[in-house]
């Protein structure tokens, strides 16, 4: 494999925190003999194996599919969400992005809405609650009409898919200077707003989801576009404009029963 021959040594500064209540601190570790073909998480695995065999607690981090789709993994690496490479989740980041002797600062996502559970793991259940507030198109199982009765222009289907590609990793919040969840929320709003199936609940949805986003304690969007740069699925901030437009429509123009539908969450 290209470039696998040489190995490197790295210095890691990793955030350690035993529980939500613990204050947390950085600790330093050496990652030795790292192969460029390793994924970032495999590098952490190697560090962890060594920690465990010396009786120490390994670094806790969320991960699951390790192919960039489940959205479980994600850490801040030298100030970049999911590391220095664009359009990549932490599990898909490979060590060839780094060089021998590099010093890496590895931190959990930081936001009030995402309490740190341990080391690099955070609680992202706020995202689930935002979806629960309205991120769906209601359909009773078994009651749907034939799929091809709903014609959807390819362009709409494609832009819905662009937005729906969100994996809920929360890199957008992590990268945002304001810890805003606008990109995540807007991606779901836009996915459903682009499709005819999403229309009936469109106004209610955007109001409720935005309300929930506020309740969770996220910051607000000031259009730095850091979220877009960090997003492993390259979701565009155009979705945020879409959400804002829908929101203002719902608040100012849409029939009144939609207006307060979200109050109380």
């Amino acid at each position: 494999m290209a470039g696998d021959a040489k190995t490197m040594n790295l210095r890691l500064h990793v955030w350690r925190q035993t529980s939500v209540k613990d204050e947390g601190r950085f600790e330093e570790y050496a990652a030795k003999g790292v192969s460029p073909g390793m994924s970032f998480l495999e590098m952490l695995d190697v560090v962890n194996e060594e920690l465990i065999t010396t009786g120490k607690q390994p670094l806790a981090f969320d991960h699951d599919c390790r192919e960039g789709i489940c959205g479980a993994c994600g850490v801040m690496i030298n100030g970049n969400a999911h590391g220095p490479q664009g359009a990549t989740t932490t599990c898909q980041l490979h060590m060839r992005s780094f060089s021998d002797g590099d010093e890496l600062w590895i931190e959990p996502w930081r936001a009030r809405a995402f309490p740190v559970l341990r080391d690099l793991m955070v609680d992202r259940s706020a995202f689930d609650r935002i979806i629960a507030a309205g991120g769906y198109a209601s359909v009773r199982t078994g009651s749907a009409r034939d799929a091809n009765e709903i014609l959807i222009p390819k362009q709409n289907a494609d832009s819905a898919m662009d937005a729906a590609a969100c994996i809920g990793c929360a890199a957008c919040v992590a990268a945002c200077p304001n810890a805003s969840a606008a990109l995540f929320t807007a991606a779901k709003v836009t996915h459903l707003a682009e499709l005819p199936q999403g229309q009936p609940e469109r106004m209610r949805r955007v109001v409720r989801m935005v309300d929930q986003m506020d309740i969770e304690g996220f910051g607000h969007c000031t259009n730095h576009r850091e979220c877009e740069a960090a997003c492993p699925k390259q979701i565009s901030v155009a979705v945020i404009a879409q959400m804002n437009r829908d929101y203002l429509r719902a608040k100012l123009i849409a029939p009144a029963d939609n207006e307060n539908a979200g109050s109380g969450g």
Binding site: H13, F26, M76, N78, G79, N80, W105, E107, R110, A111, R112, A113, A175, P177, N178, A179, S180, G217, F218, G219, H220, T222, N223, H224, R225, E226, E228, A229, A230
Partner: peptide, 24 residues
């Protein structure tokens, strides 16, 4: 103030990619 509250613990390291002088 809302944004200030939203991230009580700052990052030790932080890099901007698209945020520019004007936006920041």
């Amino acid at each position: 103030a809302q944004s200030g509250d939203a991230r009580p613990t700052p990052y030790a390291k932080r890099e901007n990619n698209t945020a520019n002088l004007a936006s920041m």
